[in-house]
Simulated assay, not measured.
Amino acid sequence: MAKINVLDREVGIVVENDEDYICITDIARYKNAENTDDLIRSWLRNRNTA
């Protein structure tokens, strides 16, 4: 898995079929390291998530 720096934080990236996918778990870990699942669950429930 490749890594990029976003706002001085490392975020994983996977490339598959010429599409880039970021690791939302890495992003959630910086927001709340102990409860990353809560942030991801909320993100998935959001109707505006595309």
Rank of each mutant, 00 (worst) to 15 (best):
M1D: 07
M1Q: 07
M1N: 09
A2F: 12
A2Q: 10
A2E: 14
K3Q: 14
K3R: 14
I4M: 08
I4D: 05
V6D: 03
L7A: 14
D8L: 13
D8I: 15
R9Y: 14
E10C: 03
E10D: 04
G12V: 06
G12H: 04
G12M: 09
G12C: 10
I13R: 13
I13V: 11
V14Q: 04
V14P: 11
V15L: 04
N17Q: 13
N17Y: 13
N17D: 10
D18M: 12
D18A: 14
E19T: 13
D20C: 05
D20Y: 06
I22F: 08
C23L: 04
C23V: 02
I24C: 03
D26Q: 04
D26C: 05
D26F: 07
I27M: 01
I27P: 00
I27T: 02
I27H: 02
R29I: 08
Y30E: 05
N32G: 00
A33R: 15
A33M: 14
E34Q: 07
E34C: 06
E34H: 07
N35E: 09
N35F: 05
N35A: 11
T36E: 13
D37V: 11
D38P: 00
D38R: 14
I40E: 02
I40V: 06
I40T: 02
I40C: 02
W43E: 01
W43S: 03
W43A: 01
L44M: 15
R45S: 12
N46E: 06
R47Y: 05
N48E: 05
N48W: 02
T49W: 05
T49D: 04
A50D: 15
